[in-house]
């Protein structure tokens, strides 16, 4: 299978006086060419740190401790700064959380698009010509080019962000919570535009969100993150039909589906501390199936079926 991104045993820690917050603690996954890969995790799972880590956007006290991030044959973590800069935006693109609030309030949309394109080698005249096209791709009328961010609604701002992020035709787009804070109707439109662009560009998209319903709507494959580790990966249809890891099934059981009559259940307990995670399997304090082995030894993350991975002693 043609792989675009191969993350191997990544560890990203925050070094604070006296301790390390092990936000990403030995995590591996791959993203194929032309696919939508989702990463679902709740608060405290480390998912934003993962995004920042694989794109090498981390700043102290956040450090990449070990691991490899192979993008199209090159290890992002080890290439020189110059090459990294080349790759950013032209091949790799990042939409951070609350990006729409980071738009420069004193620049018109057109100028922000131009700035993004210029800083990656495009000539101003080339950029000018592309603006209308870019706005069209995200479903915005050409007038938006002359407007300021505060004149736009949340959904429109997010679409401008998507336009900026895809201006240089990247091969991989990483979107961190791209639609939180947007109304449901706007959310659907923004996500649909994102998917449309991705398809046109033939790019891969990594969508990171805590909202499992959004994952169900848009991704091809899904990775479930818990306490800094990946606990399950698989095709989205398989995972929802038959979740293997107890955390995954816990998530499914605690999410209501409109129109279906089902009792909901919470997962007891709270997410563990990332400074001092529990020994063995990190989920064991909350797991209804926890055995002695689970409390002592960490289960390996391995393949249990066609592209299906899980880290649980129940599946050896």
């Amino acid at each position: 299978m043609p792989e675009l991104l191969n993350v191997k045993d990544l560890r990203v820690y925050y070094r604070i006086p006296g301790a390390s917050v092990r936000a990403v603690d030995g995590l591996s996954f791959t993203v194929k060419k032309n696919e939508v890969f989702g990463i679902v995790g709740e608060s405290g799972s480390g998912k934003t740190t993962l995004a920042v880590g694989i794109l090498r956007l981390n700043k102290p006290p956040c450090f990449v401790e070990s691991g490899e991030v192979i993008f199209d044959g090159e290890d992002i973590l080890r290439i020189p700064e110059g090459r990294l800069r080349e790759l950013r935006l032209t091949h790799l693109s990042y939409i951070p959380q609350s990006a729409m609030n980071a738009l420069n309030p004193v620049l018109r949309v057109r100028d922000q698009l131009l700035d993004a394109m210029e800083s990656h080698g495009m000539r101003r005249s080339e950029g000018q010509a592309r603006i209308k096209e870019l706005l069209e791709m995200v479903g915005l009328p050409p007038e938006v080019a002359g407007m300021y961010p505060h004149e736009l609604s949340g959904g429109m701002k997010q679409r401008v962000i998507i336009a900026i992020a895809t201006a240089m035709k990247p091969k991989l787009i990483v979107a961190d919570e791209p639609t939180t804070a947007l109304d449901v109707v706007v959310q659907r439109r923004v996500l649909e535009f994102l998917l449309e662009i991705r398809e046109k560009l033939g790019a891969s998209l990594i969508v990171i969100t805590h909202d499992i319903a959004v994952q169900a709507e848009i991704v091809d494959r899904l990775g479930v993150m818990y306490a800094g580790k990946m606990v399950e990966i698989g095709n989205v249809h398989d995972i929802f039909k038959d979740p293997l890891h107890p955390y995954t099934s816990g998530l499914m059981m605690s999410t209501p589906i409109l129109g279906e009559k089902k009792a909901l259940e919470s997962i007891p307990g709270t997410p563990p501390s990332l400074i001092n995670p529990p020994p063995g399997c990190r989920f064991h304090p909350r797991c209804p199936f926890a055995s002695e082995e689970c409390k002592r030894m960490e289960p390996p993350f391995h393949e249990v079926g066609a592209s299906r991975f899980v880290a649980c002693w129940r599946y050896k």
């Binding site: 659907r188 909202d211 319903a213 994952q215 169900a216 709507e217 249809h237 929802f240 999410t255 589906i257």
Partner: peptide
């Protein structure tokens, strides 16, 4: 109708395209 059509459902078998009652237009 617009709201119900737009909410994401945690069921990959019932995606938006399959159950849109009403699509938002600009």
């Amino acid at each position: 109708q617009l709201l119900v059509s737009s909410i994401p459902l945690p069921d990959p078998e019932k995606r938006w395209k399959a159950r849109t009652m009403l699509k938002a237009e600009e």
